[in-house]
Simulated scan of single mutants.
Amino acid sequence: MKTKRYQKGNVVVIGGGTGLSVLLRGLKQYPVNLTAIVTVADDGGSSGRIRSDLNIPPPGDIRNVLAALSDVEPLVEEMFQYRFASKNELGGHSLGNLIIAAMTSITGDFANGIEEMSKVLNVRGRVLPSANQSLLLSAEMEDGTVIRGESKIPFSGKKIRRVYLTPEHVKALPQAVEAIEEADMIIIGPGSLYTSILPNLLVKEIGEAVINSAVPKVYICNLMTQAGETLHYTASNHIEALYDHMGERFIDYILVNNEDVPEEIRSLYDKEMAEPVKFDVERLRALGLNVVYDKIIMNKNGLIRHDTDRVAEIIVRLIAETKNQLA
């Protein structure tokens, strides 16, 4: 049984936001057992309204991951992702968010609702919230002020010292912890460092399971910095923030881009105060990381995104290369 499991590979991906969905669209094309563990700290937009009105975890990041891993007709996925443009109560809501909210009410439980929705969408793999309840993400800034709410943190105009969750001792979803314990590889990112990735790892049982796991852990570094979160951050700054929050070093590999971002694309990001992440390789190696370079960017409608197919190919290659270490 064990040999068969290693041949296929249990891959756990931890994160949230657009970056996670992009990665999963590539990985689902390979014969691996995928589990996505997704943040439930979002409190803005349609997700925030549903969270507040119905007292359930925010469905937005979960919705995007379900869509990314779904195997349905394109029109069905488009319908699931459809956002109402009207100015009434439906305005701004995504149909998928409303369906997940309905499934939660029908099944009586957020995680159960996601599981049933996964069956409807013929999802390849499992999609699990890091916790089965909403979490409040707060940030302590370098000047000592505190910003409460995930959606407000990037707009504070101040530098983040640390982020933390309320309640502090939230219980992780048991299936998520189990998935990490049974993983052959754990992938962290890509995604917003402080508002998509760390809210998962700061769920104590999730973070401990990741740190205690002996399997290779891969951090997929963001391509661009993010104003309000990682302005002027290098790749090693991202790693150091993760280590500072978790209290120890725990990542084995970092995947970084080795291709310059075209100047005409960089200029489009100027108004967002975003710039390509500088990959300070010597510092990364000093932190004990295996640095994997590759051409992993693609231009999608003037936006820089990870090349989903290339990144997935690299991850699958890493699984094969490290397989003997897991046996």
Rank of each mutant, 00 (worst) to 15 (best):
D61G: 05
D61E: 05
D61H: 05
I62V: 14
I62Q: 09
I62H: 02
I62T: 10
R63F: 07
R63L: 07
R63I: 01
R63W: 10
R63K: 00
N64C: 00
N64Y: 01
V65E: 12
V65N: 11
L66M: 09
L66E: 03
L66T: 01
L66F: 12
L66P: 05
A67I: 07
A67K: 12
A67Y: 04
A67C: 04
A68E: 12
A68T: 14
A68Q: 13
L69R: 08
L69K: 07
L69C: 02
L69V: 10
S70N: 04
S70V: 05
S70F: 08
S70A: 12
D71C: 09
V72S: 02
V72I: 12
E73P: 00
E73N: 15
P74A: 01
P74G: 09
P74F: 15
P74S: 12
P74D: 12
L75T: 10
L75P: 02
L75W: 04
L75E: 07
L75Y: 00
V76W: 06
V76N: 02
E77T: 13
E77H: 01
E78R: 11
E78M: 06
E78H: 08
M79A: 14
M79Y: 03
M79K: 01
M79R: 05
M79G: 04
M79C: 13
F80C: 00
F80S: 04
F80A: 01
Q81L: 15
Y82R: 11
R83S: 15
R83P: 14
R83K: 15
F84T: 03
F84H: 08
A85N: 14
A85D: 14
A85F: 09
S86G: 09
S86T: 15
S86I: 01
S86Y: 06
S86P: 00
S86L: 04
S86C: 11
K87M: 04
K87Y: 00
K87C: 06
K87E: 07
N88P: 04
N88Y: 12
E89D: 00
E89G: 00
E89A: 08
E89C: 02
E89W: 06
L90D: 06
L90M: 15
L90H: 05
G91E: 03
G91T: 04
G91Q: 02
G91L: 07
H93I: 08
H93G: 08
S94I: 03
S94N: 15
L95A: 13
L95K: 09
L95W: 09
L95E: 09
L95I: 14
G96W: 01
G96P: 14
G96Q: 09
L98Q: 05
I99D: 02
I99C: 04
I99E: 07
I100K: 00
A101I: 09
A101V: 10
A101Y: 02
A102L: 10
A102T: 14
A102E: 11
A102V: 06
A102R: 12
A102Y: 04
M103G: 03
M103V: 11
M103I: 10
M103D: 02
M103P: 07
M103Q: 09
T104C: 11
T104E: 04
T104M: 04
T104Q: 02
